[in-house]
C-alpha cells in the first residue's frame, strides 16, 4: 500500500483549518472552502483544478480528507509545483481507494 503523501503533521494542520471553518456534519460546502483557496492568491483556473482533483465524490463539498488534498495541492502550488491534471494514486486518501 502506498502511504498517503499528506504527512500526519500536515494532516493535523489541515484538519485544524478544516475545523475552524465550521464544517456541518463533517463536510464543508464549496462556498465555505472557496474564500480559503482564493486567499492563496493562486489563479482561479488553478484553484478550479485543485477543486476538481480534491472533490473526489463530486458532491460540491469537501470532507476532511478531501479538504486535506485541496490544501496539499494549494501549498505545493505556492511552492511552485504544477497542479497535476489528474490525482496521482499516492494523493488519494487511503479512505477513498
Amino acid at each position: 500500500d502506498t502511504p498517503w503523501v499528506v504527512k500526519p503533521e500536515e494532516k493535523m494542520k489541515f484538519d485544524s483549518i478544516f475545523e475552524s471553518l465550521g464544517p456541518a456534519g463533517g463536510i464543508l460546502t464549496g462556498d465555505k472552502v472557496k474564500p480559503v483557496l482564493l486567499n492563496s492568491k493562486l489563479p482561479v483556473d488553478i484553484l478550479g483544478r485543485v477543486w476538481e482533483l480534491s472533490d473526489l465524490d463530486r458532491d460540491g463539498m469537501l470532507d476532511k480528507d478531501e479538504f486535506s488534498v485541496a490544501m496539499y495541492l494549494v501549498y505545493r502550488a505556492l511552492e511552485g509545483e504544477p497542479v497535476p491534471m489528474s490525482l496521482p494514486p499516492p494523493l488519494v486518501p487511503p479512505s477513498k481507494r
Binding site: K34, W51, E52, D55, R58, D59, G60
Partner: peptide, 13 residues
C-alpha cells in the same frame, strides 16, 4: 466520467 462544462459542483467554474 462526468459532464464537462457547467459543472455545478465546482465553485470555481
Amino acid at each position: 466520467q462526468y459532464p464537462t462544462g457547467g459543472s455545478s459542483t465546482n465553485p470555481f467554474l
